[in-house]
Amino acid sequence: MRSDNGAPEAPTTPGQPTAEAGPPPSDAPVRAHDEPPRRRWGELVLAAATAALGVYVLVAAGSITVPGSTNTLGPRAFPYLVGGMLVAAGVVLVVLFLTGRAGEEEGGEDVDPTVRTDWLTVVLLVVALVVHVFVINVIGWPFAAAVLFAGAAVILGARPWWRAALIGLVLGLVIQVIFGGLLGLSLPAGPLLEGVPFLRG
């Protein structure tokens, strides 16, 4: 990969498939850190889901078959413990949320604390991954990897799209040669490259 940060941001090319990944479309230009802390209901959902998983673990642990020979701690005891911990942690977190003590989100070098969550990007990235999964066995790993790389890069703001596609293709093929050819990992090369000797270990 070459650094090309000197290149000016090219305007969005018309007719591009997945280019609508700019700033989130709906929100008014309100900065997240200026407003009073909002209730983020997703946090409540996560805490409740933790507790719910715990309840499930407690219930399901009761149906684990215990072989008759065990006279001490069987296969159920630890699941009961884990289920109890999940319920306890989940309930505490729900209470914390309801009393207004929300979690601090994780920082990071590339995270801009002033922007709001761009859900569209998250959804599109997941879509790119799922597409990748389903095309591996159709077009072969190197091309599926190129699809994933180019898709994710464009979703994250790479322009122009063909450069991302080109880099993805080169990366996919290089990895195929190194891992498939040299290290003997049996990555499927796909119908297009079938029979190219150095791509398979």
Partner: peptide, 27 residues
């Protein structure tokens, strides 16, 4: 350090997918 971030995270996703796929070659 200067690698453009869209390429960096696209690459991370690709290597992550490779790492998990290479375990059993199962989608």
């Amino acid at each position: 350090l200067r690698i453009p971030r869209h390429y960096l995270y696209a690459g991370i996703l690709m290597f992550g997918a490779l790492g998990s796929y290479a375990l059993n070659f199962s989608p």
